[in-house]
Design a protein around this nucleic acid. Structure first.
Lengths: 186, 186
DNA sequence: TCCGTTTGGAACAATGATGTTTCAAACGGA
DNA sequence: TCCGTTTGAAACATCATTGTTCCAAACGGA
């Protein structure tokens, strides 16, 4: 009865994302491994949680890397669209890290997220200098808004209200142009 | 050694918002009450959590009521601004309810939030009919975006990056007009 | 003052998961 | 086949918290 597929951490991720209160026995069973072995690899529940979270951040980092924000000549809109498309599907991972209280104390996780935010902040600043993005809003706030929008989009998908394929475009449009009618009486 | 002030639930709220993992003994101590008495009023930790969460939703509902979204002649922008100003300070309450996993199963809480969302959805739809808000975005999505923006703003305040007084205007501006430069080359 | 009610203190049982240890069995390469 | 290594099963100690119970004491109105 091996776990369906993947490494132990991956299966632990699946199990813990589905039920964050799962006992270690359940995680071990799901992974097709004895509790003893699980304990040998991750002596402590907290260590397992951190491993799961780290793997999640790995995925987020990979998503950023694949989007390739660094290219200095990059136009902001396309980069943002690709970033949204890459991040929204990672909603479960983001939600897990965000909600799991015992991870709050894990400074390294926050540091890594901050570094990723910095990448986007740079992108935004370039967009601002190029006159494409509003310069009257702080770059960090734009990034916060973007992250919040990603989260909102994921939640909508989870609730079955939003089609995954529609999400990136909708978020981008909302974020870039706002909700005010262009025609109407502003 | 009475608790500094307020009802038991209010003090429990303070204690649990500060440290959601606090043992009941700590909550009782903070409230200047014996664990026995606490148990008499809330036989179960879960019941206490629900009571705290309910009180939090009460506050949110009161905030909505004071904003007065129902007025049919109301212009959308003013109502949204007042709503943001009322909701953002409730960030701790919203965060508590959102992150506390044992509250996920509490259907009544979700129902109440849904009712509040419905109020805003109606407001948005009126705004759309009036030509003030974009009609190409679903009203529920606009409301989700708004809620996400509230959360992002609160987080920024908590991190010390955003002045509470600046928050409503900044959020409203971002939400209504987006992050794209009006001048720039669209 | 008297008495019913509410509270506090303390000790207790139950719980349920975690982390530990031990030994036998399975595995895998040489 | 042999041997070192990895694994599993089971039993155990620990532990913090929760929820329960009981009695004495404080409280408060009549």
């Amino acid at each position: 009865m091996r776990g369906s597929s993947g490494t132990l951490v991956e299966i632990a991720t699946q199990t813990l994302l589905a039920n964050p209160a799962a006992a270690l026995a359940e995680v071990a069973a799901a992974a097709g491994v004895s509790r003893t072995t699980l304990h040998r690899l991750y002596p402590t529940r907290q260590e397992l949680l951190v491993a799961v979270a780290s793997e999640a951040v790995d995925r987020v980092e990979r998503a950023y890397a694949e989007v390739g924000l660094e290219a200095p000549g990059e136009e902001a809109e396309g980069a943002l669209r690709r970033l949204l498309a890459a991040l929204i599907p990672l909603g479960p991972q983001l939600e897990f890290i965000h909600r799991e209280r015992s991870l709050d104390a894990e400074l390294s996780l926050h540091t890594r997220f901050d570094s990723l935010d910095d990448l986007v902040i740079d992108l935004v600043k370039r967009g601002q200098r190029a006159g494409v993005l509003r310069a009257d809003l702080a770059a960090w706030w734009i990034v916060s808004s973007l992250n919040g929008a990603v989260y909102a989009a994921w939640e909508s998908i989870e609730l079955g209200r939003l089609a995954p394929n529609d999400a990136p475009g909708m978020v981008l449009s909302t974020l870039l142009d706002g909700i005010r009618s262009a025609a109407g009486g502003g």
